[in-house]
Design a protein around this nucleic acid. Structure first.
Length: 714
DNA sequence: GATACTGGTA
C-alpha cells in the first residue's frame, strides 16, 4: 500500500479494526522490547483501542508511544484512530513536534489539520499551518489537499487557511502558487483571501499581477467585494494610473457595488499624489454630498498634496475644515504640515507645529522626527539634525533607513563625506542595511564634490550588495559621467537601463540634454528634444532651460531668446531658473533693458525671484557701475525676506574695491561676518586685489598685531 | 478584510 493510498483511507474511511495481538494490553512495556516492528505496531493500535486512557495521558514517552512519531506512516494511522478526540490528537501532535526524533510527512500534517478543521478548531489549525510553513512542507500539503484525499469542503477550508497564514507572513509567491492551484482545480478560495493576496501584490508594486489575479477571480466566479475593488483601486493609484482606477469605479457600479468612504479616500489620495488637487477636492465634495463622512484619511492626502506644492495656506485651510467637520488631526496631519514647512526652508515654524502636537498629547512618531531632521539638513544645520537624532532615541523610537539616509544627505551637502561613511557603518551595526537611496545619496554627493572615482566605487558596491539601481540611481550616476568622466559610459548606462525595462523618462532626457549642452553639442541637444517627443514625453521647463542656458553661455543671446519664445508657445512655464539664466546672461553682457524686462515678466507671472536672480541683477549693475541701482536691489531683496549670500557680498565688495571704495568694501565684509556668512577665496581675492596700493600698510599692521597677539597668548 | 505622513536625480 502506498502512503497516499493509506492516507486516503485514513481520511475518508474508518480504519478497519486492527488485530488484537498478544496479551500485552498494558502500555507500560519494558524499555527494550524484543518485539518485531509489526508486533510493535499492533501493540500500539491495540493499546489505543483498548486502553484509551493510556493515550489520554500527557506522558506519551513513558508509555512507549515514542516510536510512533519517528514513523510518519504509523503517526498518520495513530492520529486517524483518535480523530474523534481532537484535543488529545492535538496534544499528542504538539508533544511530537517538540521531540527531536519526530519525522514529519505531508500526511501527518494533513491528518491533524483535517481533524482540527472537522471540529472547527481553526486557531489550532492555524498554529499547525505555521509549523507546516516553517518546515517548508506547504507545497506537499497543497498537492495532497488538492488531490482529493479529503473532502473538497475541508480541502477548501484548509487551503484557505494556508493562504491566510502565507498572506500574514507576506509569502507572496507561495500565495500566488496556492491561488493558482486552487483555481485550476476548481477549489475557489474565499474572497477575503483573494483580497489579502491583492493587497500584497499592491504593496510590492506588482500591479499587473494583481490585475491578473483579479481577472482570474472573475473568470472563476469569485464575486469581488467592496474591499476587492478598493484594493484594486489603490493598486492602480499607486501606479499613477488614476484613469484606470476611475474606469474600475464605473465597472463596480455596474454590478451594484457602490463606492464607500474608503473608495473615495483611495481616489482622493491617488489624485492628490498626481498633483490633481482640484479634482481631488471635487471628489471630496461628491463624497460629502452622498452623505459619507470625511476623515483624516480623506483630508491628509489633500493637505499633504498642498504642502508639497508649497501652498501652505490652502493646506492649513483644509486642516481647519477638517477640524470643523469633527475629524481630528492625526500625527500624519501634523507630519504633512511640518514637511510642507521644512521643504520650503521654514523649519522653525515646523518646530512650532511639533510643539503644538505635543501639547495636543499626540506622540510624534519616527516620521515626525525624520521630517524635522530633513528640514534641518536642507538648511545645512546638521547640528540640530543630530540633536533630534539623539532625542528620538530617548523617546524610545528607532531610527529607520530614512533617518540615516536623510542625515547622510545632509552631511554630503556639507562635504562631510567621512562622517557620512561613518554613519553608513553605524547603520549596518544597528542592523539597518543601506538601500538604493543610501547609495544614490552618496554617489550624488561624491559627484557634486567632483570625486567621480569614489562615486563609481559606491555604485559598484551597491550592485555588489545585490541592490537593483532604479531610475534615480542611474540618472545620478549618468550625470556624474557626463559632467566629470566619460560621456560614452553614460550612454552605455542608458542602454543598460533600457534593457532592464527602465525606458528613459523626462529626468533621463533632461540629464542628457543638459549633458550634451555642456559638451557644446547644441545640435545633438535638439536631436534629443525630437527623440523625447517621439517617445511620447513632453519637454518641460528644465529641458528648455538647459538649451537656453547653452545658447547663453555660448554668447548666442538672440538664439536663446528664440528658444525661450518657442517654450512659451508650447505652453511650458518658465521657472525661476529659466528667468535667472536669462537675466544673468543679459545683465552681464550689459543688456540691462532686457534683463529688467525678464525680471518684471517673471514677477507678473508670479515666479518668485531668489537670491541667485538678485545676484545676477546686482552683478550686471555693478559691471556698468550703476552702484546706486545695485544697492537698491540689495535693499529690495532684504525687504522681501531674501537674504544676501556670500556671492551677493562678493559681487558688491569686488566692485567697491574696483572703484577704490575700500571703506565700503570693509563695511560689507564686516556685515557678512556679523551675519555669519562664510567668505570664500573669491571674497578674499576681491578684497585684496587692490592691496598693493593704499592699504598695503594696513595689511602689514594687521599682520603685526596678529603676530603680537599670538606671542602674548603663548 | 481596504485608505493618510518621512529620504535620493536634471
Amino acid at each position: 500500500m502506498t502512503l497516499c493510498a493509506r492516507a486516503s483511507k485514513a481520511f475518508k474511511v474508518r480504519l478497519p479494526p486492527l488485530p488484537l495481538s498478544s496479551s500485552f494490553h498494558s502500555p507500560s512495556l519494558p524499555a527494550t522490547s524484543p518485539l518485531s516492528d509489526t508486533h510493535y505496531r499492533d501493540l500500539i493500535f491495540s493499546t489505543i483501542r483498548t486502553t484509551p486512557s493510556a493515550f489520554r495521558t500527557r506522558d506519551w514517552s513513558s508509555h512507549r508511544f515514542r516510536p510512533v512519531i519517528s514513523d510518519p506512516d504509523l503517526f498518520v494511522r495513530v492520529l486517524a484512530q483518535i480523530r474523534a478526540r481532537p484535543t488529545v490528537a492535538l496534544r499528542f501532535f504538539r508533544w511530537a513536534e517538540a521531540q527531536p526524533e519526530v519525522k514529519r510527512s505531508e500526511f501527518v500534517f494533513c491528518v491533524i489539520l483535517e481533524i482540527l478543521a472537522h471540529h472547527n478548531m481553526m486557531r489550532s489549525a492555524y498554529w499547525v499551518m505555521e509549523r507546516v510553513i516553517s518546515v517548508d512542507m506547504h507545497h506537499g500539503i497543497v498537492d495532497v489537499l488538492i488531490d482529493e484525499y479529503v473532502f473538497a469542503k475541508v480541502s477548501i477550508k484548509l487551503l484557505d487557511l494556508l493562504l491566510w497564514v502565507c498572506a500574514n507572513k507576506l509569502l507572496v509567491e507561495q500565495c500566488l502558487s496556492i491561488f493558482d492551484k486552487m483555481i485550476t482545480n476548481g477549489l475557489l478560495p474565499h474572497v477575503n483571501n483573494c483580497n489579502r493576496l491583492l493587497r500584497m501584490l499592491r504593496d510590492r508594486n506588482l500591479a499587473s499581477r494583481a490585475q491578473e489575479v483579479y481577472r482570474r477571480m472573475g473568470e472563476a466566479g469569485i464575486k469581488p467585494t467592496i474591499v476587492t475593488y478598493n484594493t484594486m483601486l489603490d493598486s492602480f493609484c499607486k501606479q499613477g494610473e488614476v484613469q484606470q482606477a476611475l474606469h474600475l469605479v464605473s465597472e463596480m457600479q455596474k454590478v451594484e457595488c457602490f463606492p464607500n468612504d474608503v473608495t473615495y479616500n483611495v481616489l482622493i489620495n491617488g489624485l492628490s499624489k498626481k498633483g490633481k488637487l482640484e479634482q481631488a477636492e471635487g471628489l471630496l465634495q461628491d463624497m460629502l454630498k452622498s452623505g459619507l463622512r470625511a476623515s483624516a484619511y480623506t483630508y491628509n492626502p489633500l493637505i499633504c498634496g498642498y504642502c508639497k506644492r508649497g501652498l501652505l495656506a490652502e493646506a492649513l485651510n483644509l486642516g481647519e475644515e477638517m477640524a470643523a467637520r469633527g475629524a481630528a488631526p492625526t500625527v500624519a496631519t501634523y507630519n504633512s504640515i511640518m514637511y510642507g514647512l521644512c521643504k520650503w526652508g521654514r523649519v522653525t515654524e515646523a518646530r512650532d507645529w511639533f510643539t503644538n502636537m505635543l501639547k495636543k498629547r499626540l506622540s510624534p512618531d519616527i516620521v515626525s522626527y525624520n521630517t524635522l531632521i530633513y528640514g534641518y539638513c536642507r538648511l545645512g544645520d546638521i547640528w540640530n539634525a543630530f540633536l533630534l537624532f539623539d532625542e528620538l532615541r530617548r523617546r524610545a523610537l528607532t531610527p529607520t533607513v530614512i533617518t540615516y539616509n536623510t542625515l547622510m544627505d545632509g552631511l554630503c551637502r556639507l562635504g562631510e563625506f567621512e562622517v557620512a561613511q561613518q554613519l553608513k557603518k553605524e547603520m549596518v551595526n544597528q542592523g539597518i542595511f543601506p538601500d538604493v537611496f543610501t547609495y544614490t545619496i552618496l554617489v550624488n554627493g561624491y559627484c557634486k564634490a567632483g570625486n567621480l572615482s569614489k562615486a563609481r566605487e559606491l555604485f559598484d558596491e551597491m550592485l555588489h550588495n545585490g541592490l537593483e539601481p532604479d531610475r534615480f540611481a542611474y540618472n545620478t550616476r549618468m550625470v556624474g559621467e557626463l559632467d566629470l568622466g566619460d560621456p560614452s559610459k553614460a550612454f552605455n548606462m542608458q542602454e543598460e537601463m533600457l534593457a532592464k525595462g527602465l525606458p528613459p523618462d523626462l529626468f533621463t532626457y533632461n540629464v542628457f540634454v543638459d549633458g550634451v549642452c555642456k559638451l557644446g553639442n547644441l545640435s545633438e541637444a535638439y536631436n534629443m528634444l525630437q527623440k523625447m517627443v517621439h517617445d511620447g514625453l513632453v519637454p518641460d521647463h528644465v529641458t528648455y532651460t538647459s538649451i537656453i542656458h547653452a545658447y547663453l553661455v555660448s554668447g548666442r543671446l538672440r538664439k536663446a531668446r528664440e528658444v525661450y519664445d518657442e517654450m512659451l508657445s508650447k505652453d511650458v512655464h518658465p521657472s525661476v531658473v529659466t528667468y535667472t539664466v536669462l537675466i544673468h546672461a543679459h545683465a552681464s553682457k550689459g543688456r540691462l533693458e532686457l534683463a529688467y524686462m525678464y525680471f518684471s515678466e517673471m514677477q507678473e507671472k508670479r515666479v518668485l525671484p531668489n537670491v541667485v536672480t538678485y545676484n545676477a541683477l546686482i552683478n550686471g549693475l555693478c559691471k556698468v557701475m550703476r552702484m546706486d541701482q545695485a544697492y537698491e536691489f540689495f535693499t529690495h531683496m532684504e525687504e522681501k525676506g531674501i537674504l544676501p549670500n556670500k556671492y551677493t557680498y562678493t559681487i558688491l565688495i569686488n566692485e567697491n574695491c574696483n572703484i577704490g571704495n575700500w571703506k565700503e568694501a570693509l563695511r560689507l565684509y564686516k556685515q557678512m561676518l556679523d551675519r555669519e556668512i562664510e567668505p570664500d577665496f573669491c571674497t578674499h581675492s576681491a578684497l585684496f586685489k587692490q592691496l598693493d596700493r593704499d592699504y598695503k600698510l594696513h595689511a602689514v599692521h594687521c599682520l603685526e598685531s596678529l603676530i603680537l597677539a599670538t606671542e602674548e597668548s603663548s
